[in-house]
Nucleic acid binder design. Structure first.
Length: 578
RNA sequence: CGGGACGUAGCGUAGCCUGGUAGCGCGUCUGAAUGGGGUUCAGAAGGUCGUGAGUUCAAUUCUCACCGUCCCGACCA
């Protein structure tokens, strides 16, 4: 391709609405343009990158035995009603009406569609296992689209759905996808790491996210230095805490003491009380589907609502209002406690088990209780891991201090179980002629998000550093004259033809621009290899070959093609391709 | 949905406080010189100042409403 024949509008300045580096470069390098918030047009260079990522995804999905299908983007609400997600997922729907004023949904995901298809088509255990995938545009009414392609109203996703006869077989399918994902991201030049994840509203039992560490990421990931443990903070657990207090503490009876003006955990840590936060019991009031509950944590710990969702089995809860709390416990936040509370279900975090000498609110403003023994004085209905892991907590696997960092989620694999197959009647007859629901898994990769995540991870101050596997062009030829009759251009044409003939995706910068402009643009877009051809080096019979971010090497004109292919090999070798 | 910022040419911005119909840089077009890291000079085109209402002799400027964008939070498969 010749630069003048394609359309790669680079921007010298950054559009004001771009915040993170990948968003800025996306626009500056002419990969995409914004139509409006959360909606982008991919320009030719962007489409080339997208197609390359998609090709890698297809190859790896096919290798793993998945079969490509293409489902409708437009979906009937009825299948969502049958799965039960018409209500739980309703906020993300884009709804449209046809001329008969019937409602339709622009698909945010496709579990319902594929399961309906499988329910019709797969009836015998002999037809399993199956894994269907597609690369499709998804529509989600995001609360806040942001960061360019990272969180958009419309985006391209690869989604796959596996169907197995048994839970064990489903585990095998899950593992295949897990392995395929590792290969896919590696081939895209992306350092994506698998972390244990919460299943959220998707339902199911078991899940990993593939994340790209980045400050701009919206996920928070907990990990141990050696890599033995990594989890989304929503899911992350840590080594159990030692119980607070001593046998002597346990012998003391509860004692009420005045705490005028104390409204927070922090207040109580100050003089004259001097009660460290870890000796306090934090009492939270939540309303779950209109019924109140108490949630107890150590004073220095904080609640993880994702974990609470799992324990409660529903996401329909919210913190109680001040009025609701006053009515329920006859006290304001700051003096709340669970001692003697029998009329409200109490959920307590595991870290509070067997703690002695604790302090908690007395359910009377300005009063607290000391010498509380959790197992003696509280009627806990359910002990569970409810706390949010913090940096410095000990790793549940290795015992070393955990670290925390932000990351971009680019892929997610779920083991779903039979939730959708039962709801949508995806049943089959097993060997004994018994009807069974299929065991499902679902597996997503954000294609457009992956593209931007690569930019976020692979760039320098001059622009993008595309991995050779997904670069819009792998080689850019930069003749420093655009005059077709010049020796410079003639040599450029010759190398262009040779590289093209040998199957290299090469771009010829035939624009009549100053050298500086061409160099800047090539760096900005980030072609892995650039061939510079100018009078000076040509006088010695040389052209210059340069890896993006690397050093110039002079090579003889006749050896240029060979040298480029060697460099390209080096680029690919650096990716440690599977 | 709550909080904040912003909306002036394709892009980045000044002007607004203190009202008198708009300026700069980049880009674009023409010409010339130049030609190894966004070169220089000369000329030119390009604006419903987000939309609507109000105040005023007069509104980009002041007031209100709406729309849109971005950020933080809440929320989120």
């Amino acid at each position: 391709m010749r630069w003048t024949q394609t359309f790669m509008p680079t921007l010298r300045e950054t559009p004001a609405d771009a915040e993170i580096i990948s968003h800025k470069l996306l626009l500056r390098a002419g990969i995409a343009r914004k139509l409006t918030g959360g909606l982008y047009t991919f320009l030719p260079a962007g489409v080339r990158v997208l197609r390359k990522i998609e090709t890698i995804v297809r190859e790896e999905m096919n290798r793993a035995g998945a079969l490509e299908v293409l489902m409708p983007a437009l979906q009937p609400p009825e299948i969502w009603q049958r799965s039960g997600r018409y209500d739980t997922a309703s906020e993300v729907f884009f709804r449209v009406k046809d001329r008969a004023r019937k409602e339709w949904i622009l698909g945010p995901t496709h579990e319902e569609v594929i399961t309906t298809m499988v329910a019709d088509e797969l009836n015998s255990y002999r037809q399993f296992p199956r894994n269907f995938y597609q690369i499709q545009t998804k529509f989600r009414d995001e609360i806040r689209p942001r960061f360019g392609l990272m969180r958009a109203k419309e985006f391209i996703m690869k989604d796959a759905y596996s169907f197995d006869c048994t839970d064990e077989a489903a585990q095998t399918s899950y593992q295949k996808m897990y392995d395929a994902y590792s290969r896919i991201f590696k081939r895209c030049g992306l350092q994506a790491i698998p972390v244990e994840a919460d299943t959220g509203v998707m339902g199911g039992k078991f899940s990993h996210e593939f994340v790209v560490p980045a400050e701009s990421g919206e996920d928070e990931v907990v990990y141990s230095e050696g890599g033995r443990y990594a989890a989304n903070v929503e899911k992350a657990a840590c080594k159990p805490f030692e119980p607070i207090g001593t046998e002597a503490d346990a012998a003391l009876p509860i004692e009420r003491f005045a705490t005028p003006g104390v409204g927070t955990i922090d207040d109580l840590t100050c003089e004259p009380f001097g009660v460290p936060a870890w000796r306090q019991i934090k009492t939270l009031v939540y309303v779950v589907e209109s019924k109140p509950i108490l949630v107890l944590l150590r004073g220095d710990h904080s609640l993880n609502e994702a974990k609470l969702t799992g324990v409660l089995g529903t996401a329909k809860f919210r913190p109680a209002t001040a009025d609701e709390i006053l009515e329920l416990l006859k006290a304001h936040p700051g003096s709340l406690g669970a001692v003697g509370v029998a009329h409200v279900p109490v959920y307590a975090d595991e870290a509070l088990r067997n703690c002695r000498g604790m302090v908690t609110g007395a359910n009377e403003d300005g009063w607290h209780l000391r010498h509380v023994v959790t197992d003696r004085d509280l009627s806990v209905g359910r002990w569970a891991d409810l706390r949010t892991v913090r940096a410095g907590d000990l790793c549940p696997v290795t015992g070393e201090p955990l670290k925390l960092r932000r990351a971009i989620e680019v892929g997610h694999v779920f083991k779903l179980g039979t939730k959708y197959s039962i709801a949508l009647n995806a049943l089959f007859l097993d060997e004994s002629g018994k009807q069974q629901p299929a065991f499902m898994g679902c597996y997503g990769i954000g294609i457009t998000r992956t593209l931007q995540a690569v930019i976020e991870q692979c760039h320098d101050q001059d622009g993008i550093l595309w991995p050779a596997t997904i670069a819009p062009y792998t080689v850019c030829i930069t003749p420093l004259s655009a005059d077709p009759n010049s020796q410079v251009m003639q040599v450029a044409e010759q190398i262009y033809a040779e590289l093209g003939a040998s199957g290299v995706e090469v771009l010829m910068d035939d624009r009549n621009e100053r050298p500086g402009v061409k160099f800047k643009d090539a760096d900005l877009i980030g072609f892995p290899i650039r061939v510079g051809i100018g009078e000076k080096s040509l006088a010695n019979g040389n052209v210059e070959v340069k890896r993006r971010g690397g050093a110039l090497t002079a090579v003889k004109v006749g050896e240029a093609t060979c040298a480029v292919r060697e460099l390209l090999k080096g680029c690919l070798a650096n990716l440690n391709l599977p």
